[in-house]
Simulated assay, not measured.
Amino acid sequence: MSGKIVNLSRARKTRARDDKRRQADANAARFGRNKAERDLDQARTGKEAAHLDAHRRDGADEE
């Protein structure tokens, strides 16, 4: 019996931590965007909304 002694509790925790890290990396690759991308998207959406509002016709013109 010449083997390495392993604490099973520590081994389980290490394996669980590695599994969570792998899952988090997969989720970040699938769904994640960095802050610059989110800010750029928000700025573009705001600019598009302002552009549409600027070209909106008033109800007074239709009467």
Rank of each mutant, 00 (worst) to 15 (best):
residue 1 M to N: 10
residue 1 M to P: 08
residue 2 S to F: 05
residue 3 G to F: 09
residue 4 K to C: 06
residue 6 V to H: 04
residue 6 V to T: 14
residue 6 V to E: 12
residue 6 V to Y: 02
residue 7 N to V: 09
residue 7 N to I: 08
residue 8 L to N: 12
residue 8 L to G: 13
residue 9 S to A: 15
residue 9 S to Q: 14
residue 10 R to I: 14
residue 10 R to K: 15
residue 10 R to W: 06
residue 11 A to N: 03
residue 11 A to W: 04
residue 11 A to Y: 06
residue 12 R to W: 06
residue 12 R to S: 13
residue 13 K to P: 00
residue 13 K to T: 09
residue 13 K to G: 06
residue 13 K to I: 06
residue 13 K to Y: 01
residue 13 K to S: 08
residue 15 R to D: 14
residue 15 R to P: 02
residue 16 A to T: 13
residue 16 A to E: 13
residue 16 A to H: 06
residue 16 A to G: 05
residue 17 R to D: 05
residue 17 R to V: 09
residue 18 D to M: 11
residue 18 D to C: 05
residue 19 D to K: 11
residue 20 K to F: 10
residue 20 K to C: 09
residue 21 R to D: 09
residue 23 Q to W: 03
residue 23 Q to F: 04
residue 23 Q to A: 15
residue 24 A to H: 06
residue 25 D to S: 15
residue 26 A to L: 08
residue 26 A to V: 10
residue 26 A to T: 10
residue 27 N to D: 15
residue 28 A to W: 09
residue 28 A to D: 10
residue 28 A to K: 14
residue 29 A to E: 09
residue 29 A to W: 02
residue 30 R to L: 14
residue 30 R to I: 06
residue 31 F to G: 01
residue 32 G to E: 02
residue 32 G to L: 01
residue 32 G to K: 00
residue 32 G to V: 03
residue 33 R to K: 14
residue 34 N to R: 01
residue 34 N to S: 02
residue 34 N to E: 01
residue 37 E to I: 04
residue 38 R to I: 15
residue 38 R to W: 00
residue 38 R to C: 07
residue 38 R to P: 01
residue 39 D to P: 02
residue 39 D to K: 03
residue 39 D to T: 05
residue 39 D to G: 00
residue 40 L to C: 04
residue 41 D to Y: 01
residue 41 D to I: 06
residue 42 Q to M: 08
residue 43 A to R: 04
residue 43 A to E: 07
residue 44 R to E: 10
residue 44 R to C: 04
residue 45 T to M: 12
residue 45 T to Y: 07
residue 45 T to P: 00
residue 46 G to I: 07
residue 46 G to F: 05
residue 46 G to R: 12
residue 46 G to H: 11
residue 46 G to D: 13
residue 47 K to D: 13
residue 47 K to F: 05
residue 49 A to I: 02
residue 50 A to I: 01
residue 51 H to W: 12
residue 53 D to V: 08
residue 55 H to L: 15
residue 55 H to R: 15
residue 56 R to P: 01
residue 56 R to T: 08
residue 57 R to Q: 11
residue 58 D to I: 08
residue 58 D to A: 14
residue 58 D to P: 02
residue 58 D to E: 11
residue 59 G to R: 04
residue 59 G to S: 10
residue 60 A to G: 06
residue 63 E to F: 08
residue 63 E to V: 11
residue 63 E to P: 02
